[in-house]
Computed example of a mutant assay.
Amino acid sequence: MRFTHATPEATYGFAKRFAHYKDFYTKYDGLIFSKLGFGTFKKEPYKEENYTFDYKDALKTAIRGGINVIDTAINYRYQQSEREIGEVLKELIHSGEIKREELIICSKGGFIPLDFPFPENPYEWINEHIIQKGLATSMDIELDQHCMTPAFLKASLDRSLANLQVECLDVYFLHNPETQLTRIGYRQFLIDLEAIFTVFEKSVSEGKIKSYGIAVWNAFIYDENNSEYINLEDVYDVAQKVGGANHHFKYIQIPFNLAKTHAYSVANQKMSDDNYYTLLQVAYKLGIGVMSSSSLLQMHLFKKPFKPEIGYLLDSKMELQSDIQLALQFVRSTRGIVTSLFSTCSSEHVSSNLSIASVNATNTTKYNLLYKVER
């Protein structure tokens, strides 16, 4: 039998090859996830330097080092990140080094991807590739960069599959829908979300995705009075309305790091029982897997050295060598998070980051003490 997606047996077999690792794998929805995932986001996309490197060698090092979660988005580096992942997957799968079903592959749709090389006139590109094809109207496009009509998302998914050279994605995320929230309003957002989830459920039945979710920046962790706030239970209710009890809304993706701990520490999500909970508590109650992004806050965490107390609580035996490793140890040790993403184009950095797999995760008692240390 040929599998086109991750399977429980294969992801378990992948993890068994790294049995010497400590607390580095976790189980969710039957699959075994590495606690660190390989991300491919690069900030400031208009900088030419973003296209003079590639992620390919670093990704190979990550997979060979025990990472089986790969995250991207169609707009990252104007589709280049997806295409580079596709090249690596084709090479490693063709050579027999890995199997497709051992890997958990995620992408996102919502932002207009444009293309590389960057088009001379991006507005003409949008008109030719989106508006003239009937995927959306100009009124559906926010800030010349974001669109979430069902037709556009369906086309984006098909393009992502082609870029990645796979038949099926394990997780497909609606990417930063809060970009449009202020304009359309919350009630309309939930109405639009129903149509979007209908397309996603159909994509599951067509074998193009196994599950879907929402990836946000601050939307799930804002105060509920913020115009970009999203209530997770409301989203879950839409999924149930569309897909019934067996819906495939299984994941959310949020930023989480030593400086941005709101998902764990701030009770901002009101549930139907009229009580407020943290985002991670609500996700647990609803059975939603949480993937965290921005584990290193795009390197802004390291403007000054960590305090000794942080190092002691995260690594009392002093086995880790850098603040970067400590920051990854922090996210890896957070209860309620399935996997945490980091991004680098350096194989050396990947190997250094994987050093945390040689030590145990921080226990809950010490972990909670971290929230009393002034950072």
Rank of each mutant, 00 (worst) to 15 (best):
T362D: 10
N257L: 05
L297T: 04
I85H: 08
A245Y: 08
D223C: 09
F302D: 03
S205T: 10
G13M: 09
F189C: 00
A6P: 01
K366T: 02
G13C: 08
L161F: 10
V331K: 02
A62L: 11
D71C: 05
D273A: 09
K372C: 07
C106G: 03
N368D: 14
L169W: 03
N360G: 13
K56W: 11
Y312Q: 15
A239L: 07
G39D: 08
K210D: 08
V290K: 03
P119F: 10
Q188G: 04
E194L: 04
K90S: 15
N163Q: 08
K372A: 12
S205W: 13
A245S: 13
D54K: 08
R64I: 03
T182Q: 11
A151K: 12
N50T: 07
T261N: 11
K208H: 05
E228A: 13
R332G: 02
A162D: 10
G39S: 08
F302N: 05
T7E: 03
R64T: 00
Q253P: 12
E84W: 09
N231H: 06
Y28T: 07
G96P: 02
S355V: 04
M1G: 14
V171Y: 05
M291Y: 10
F249K: 01
G244T: 01
E87Q: 12
E91I: 06
L135G: 07
F18I: 00
L161K: 02
D192T: 01
Y76L: 03
S203K: 14
E374P: 02
E44S: 12
G86E: 03
Y371T: 07
P177I: 02
A215E: 01
I141M: 12
C106M: 11
L153K: 11
A15C: 05
V350F: 07
K366P: 02
R83W: 04
S156R: 03
T40L: 11
T261I: 13
K60Q: 15
G65H: 05
I105G: 06
I324V: 15
Y251A: 00
G289R: 00
L354R: 10
V166C: 09
G336T: 00
R375A: 09
G289P: 00
R332T: 01
L313C: 12
P177L: 03
E319W: 12
D223M: 07
Y46G: 07
T365V: 12
I252M: 02
A162N: 11
